[in-house]
Computed example of a mutant assay.
Amino acid sequence: MARQRPDSPPLFEIVDRPDFSVESRAIARGQWPVAGLDEAGRGPLAGPVVAAAVVLDPARIPDGLDDSKRLTLAQREELFSTILATSLGVSMASVCAESIDSSNILKASLEAMRRALCGLPLAPKLALADGRDVPPGLPCPGEALVKGDRRSQSIAAASIVAKVMRDRMMTGCGLMDARYGFEVHMGYATVRHRTAITAHGAVARWHRISFAPFRVQGDEAMVADLEDASVF
């Protein structure tokens, strides 16, 4: 017998697209400007973690804002330009692979978000951070939103800016060293990337030596030299 669908409403609202409701409630409390914070690049084996802070203009919110992972490359690029053109403030910051190795990726991600917020041309009264953690050391109150890039348009805008900027940085790495295909996989652990690491070793100051497979196989044997590799 087929199972009947319950006629009671769901206990929790299913969020599909980000909106401006969290920001609107903050404005009603007198907390304006509101900045959205997000990062890109927590999972890759190479490259920096990049964060962005965005203060949207409530009167000029771009259409189509969403979690950057749910957008195509063309959509991200178009929205990136629109966000820069219409927002009240946009700032970006990164933490390099060496700094990630010296602490950990969570601390590095939160530090990148803090730096991005501090780089804004205006002082926010509230920061909305994607995830479970509020970056320490913010110059204003902060609120963490799990899946914030699918709930808050400000965070969604920050996710797009961070993703586009990081992809451009990794594309630059691919132009400097064609062996690894950074411009294709952006430093993630694809088969192509892992094969290149096995063949050529890791690039000093580009690869995250604290990540597997480097720490499994041994740092000294894996690290290759590359002149002028410290581009981050």
Rank of each mutant, 00 (worst) to 15 (best):
P62Y: 06
S94M: 06
N104E: 04
A116R: 08
S24F: 04
D66H: 13
E39T: 01
G89N: 12
L45H: 10
P33L: 07
C140W: 07
A26C: 08
E77S: 04
R17M: 04
A97L: 07
S21P: 02
D130E: 06
S94I: 00
P62G: 09
A53N: 07
E143W: 13
Q75T: 08
Q75K: 13
M92V: 09
K107E: 15
I105W: 01
P18T: 01
L138I: 04
D63K: 14
L145R: 01
L73W: 06
L110R: 02
V134S: 11
R17P: 00
L106M: 14
S109V: 08
G131L: 06
A74R: 14
L110S: 05
P141R: 12
G131V: 02
Q31L: 15
R70H: 05
D19G: 10
D101E: 07
S21R: 15
R29T: 12
A53S: 09
W32M: 11
E111Y: 11
R151C: 10
A26W: 05
L71C: 03
L122C: 14
L128F: 14
S68T: 11
V54L: 12
R29P: 13
W32R: 10
F20P: 02
K69W: 07
R114I: 00
V49G: 01
I100P: 00
E39K: 01
G41H: 01
Q31M: 15
P135V: 06
E23T: 00
E39R: 00
L106H: 15
L138Q: 11
L117N: 04
V95Q: 01
A59T: 08
I83N: 13
C96F: 02
D57N: 15
A129G: 12
S99E: 15
E98S: 12
F20G: 04
L88S: 13
A35Y: 11
A26E: 05
P62T: 06
D63G: 10
A46T: 01
R70F: 02
M113W: 11
S102E: 15
L128C: 06
T82A: 03
M113N: 04
E78W: 03
R150K: 14
A129V: 03
K125W: 03
P121T: 03
A112P: 01
A129P: 08
S94W: 05
A127M: 12
L126R: 11
R70S: 08
I100G: 00
S81T: 13
D133S: 09
A46I: 01
P135F: 05
P62H: 05
S81H: 10
V95F: 04
I100R: 00
L45A: 11
L122P: 00
A108K: 14
V54K: 04
R25Y: 08
V146F: 04
E23S: 05
R42C: 15
P33V: 04
C118I: 11
G41Y: 02
T86H: 06
R29W: 06
E111G: 09
A52E: 10
M113S: 06
D63W: 11
S94L: 09
F80K: 00
V55H: 07
I105E: 01
L145I: 15
D63I: 08
S109C: 10
A53H: 05
S99A: 13
G89T: 09
F20E: 05
R151D: 07
L37T: 02
R76W: 04
